[in-house]
């Protein structure tokens, strides 16, 4: 009897050492997985037949209509909504990066600084970023308010990872640097900072994911000039156009994948350049 492995001979044989085989395998599995997701959604939408679960075909139609005529409710294009969200997201992210990384390095380096900062951080950390949204929007306005919600979302994972990174540095490396004549400042930026970068990037990856959730939710409370979160809420609550809502959800997903994908790529490049693979 013929065994399955013999069918088609070596053509069907998967070689884990072959890069092309690995790529094709990964591609086929990814595409199949996404097809399964779309089919499950489609079947669910048809079986349940409820207003707020449109079929993928209807969402596809809505997407092209939005590309062609834009968002007729706000007078904005889909690109305008995406750029509005990206701008707020980038603003919040960069502020968080500028504050969390230096603070994390200092906290990791100085025990006193860590002991002093920890109580404050531990009191603030459990507060969900979205809980700050009404306060920030009222206090800082509809532009800076949502940005600060992103700031909170990105800040804590970035800070924790940076502190963790500093603490993971092998003390022998610091001793060696000092033995070779490096002063405190040189030890800081020639040993501690480079060794911490992979951990900082890990914090960036986690922070980007949380930041996306924050910006979309904050825009649902209030946002000037549109935004994907605003687009989703307006179409859901005001217009009841659910295919448009799903277009918004898919955009959020894609933008999240792209931003975390870029962070992942940068992370890998840095690790590779630093010989830390």
């Amino acid at each position: 009897m013929l065994k399955f492995d013999e069918v088609g001979g070596s053509l069907l044989k998967y070689d884990p050492e072959n890069r092309l085989h690995r790529f094709v395998r990964s591609f086929v599995i990814t595409v199949t997985s996404l097809i399964m997701l779309v089919l499950a959604w489609w079947v669910g939408a048809l079986a349940l037949d409820i207003t707020y679960l449109p079929t993928p075909a209807r969402v596809y139609e809505a997407f092209w209509r939005l590309i062609e005529v834009g968002d007729v409710v706000t007078g904005l294009t889909l690109q305008d909504h995406i750029m509005a969200s990206l701008n707020r997201f980038a603003g919040g992210f960069f502020i968080a990066f500028a504050v969390a990384v230096p603070l994390g390095l200092i906290m990791g380096y100085s025990r006193t600084a860590e002991e002093f900062s920890n109580p404050i951080i531990e009191v603030l950390r459990p507060i969900a970023p979205m809980a700050w949204a009404p306060l920030f929007i009222l206090a800082l306005g509809v532009v800076a308010g949502p940005m600060m919600v992103v700031f909170i979302g990105v800040f804590f994972p970035l800070l924790s990872n940076t502190v963790f990174g500093v603490k993971k540095i092998d003390p022998h490396m610091i001793d060696a640097a000092r033995t070779l004549g490096a002063n405190g400042l040189q030890t800081f930026y020639k040993v501690m900072l480079p060794c911490t970068i992979p951990y900082i990037m890990n914090g960036v990856k986690i922070g980007l994911g949380i930041g996306w959730m924050c910006i979309v939710a904050a825009e649902m409370i209030m946002a000037k000039g549109g935004g994907v979160g605003y687009f989703i809420l307006n179409n859901a609550q005001q217009i009841g156009n659910w295919p448009n809502v799903f277009v918004g959800l898919i955009i959020v997903s894609f933008l999240g994948i792209i931003t975390t994908g870029i962070a992942e790529r940068v992370h890998k490049m840095i690790i590779s350049r630093m010989g830390m693979e």
Binding site: V73, T74, G75, L76, A84, N87, V142, V143, K224, G225, G226
Partner: peptide, 14 residues
């Protein structure tokens, strides 16, 4: 024209 308030500058024609 009639559009949602943007975050940036306002156009006198809208």
């Amino acid at each position: 024209g009639f559009a949602i308030q943007p975050a940036g500058a306002l156009d006198d024609n809208v």
